[in-house]
Design a protein around this nucleic acid. Structure first.
Lengths: 122, 122
DNA sequence: TCCATATGTCGACGATAGTCGACATATGGA
DNA sequence: TCCATATGTCGACTATCGTCGACATATGGA
């Protein structure tokens, strides 16, 4: 991931409403939410929300899919992954000993042993 | 990491000069660089750079240490780690199956087998 | 003390971002 | 076709940001 794309992504997330949108859509993976629902749940006018969704979309962090009259927005997990990699890879460049503590802190988030075929109670 | 701190960090990195500073300081881990050196290497006036360093510092991404007349800036790797965790943890919340592909892409950055006691040629 | 070096702070300017009313477009049903 | 619903675009306003000249502060040496 080149710096220009990373800056777009960082800028998109550096705003409270958009960060809230990001979190909300993450919670609604993998089904996503219609634009209007996002606006209603966060108490933001639909046109303001449309602008924010466009920013997140241009940054590649979310994607849109039309379903009849509504447009469903979903997080693009690959983009999130790339952004996290960008953060960490800049640290790793030539210095694995610097990167090690970073990955050590990230790993407990998803214990590999419990990830496989562990049903999620919903 | 709460959202407010994350927004400060994202905003700090969402600017080309500051992202360049971040990368430059990462390359100079663990010794760091004096403020004047950072300004000179990136071709930015010292007072403009001072402002940018202050933004990165307020965001907690870098730290400063006085050494006689110069002030050495270094990346706070713990903050980088927290920010990466923030990105990924939002995805993991209750959904480890969503997080797995993210960590899978991050891991090859630092192959665990080569991290231990591998001398770095400098 | 006086001066040079290193860095930070202030103030003003132009540029960009966030908000929202008003209007435009797209879809589906009567 | 006409209307209601869902979403996007435009334009204007205010607020905040990035830049940099000028000045201020801090440190060490003569």
């Amino acid at each position: 991931m080149e710096s220009e794309r990373a800056i777009l992504a960082f800028a998109a997330l550096a705003q409270s409403t958009r960060l809230d949108v990001f979190k909300l859509l993450i919670e609604h993976e993998p089904h996503g939410l219609p634009a209007g629902e996002v606006a209603k749940r966060l108490g933001v006018p639909h046109n303001t929300m449309s602008t924010h969704l466009a920013v997140l979309s241009r940054a590649g962090l979310i994607g849109a899919e039309r379903q009849s009259r509504t447009i469903i927005y979903r997080v693009r997990l690959a983009a999130v992954s790339e952004l996290a990699s960008f953060l960490v890879q800049n640290c790793c460049a030539g210095r694995p000993e610097v990167c090690e503590p970073l990955l050590a802190e990230l790993s407990p988030c998803c214990p590999p042993a419990t990830v496989k075929n562990e049903p999620v109670h919903d």
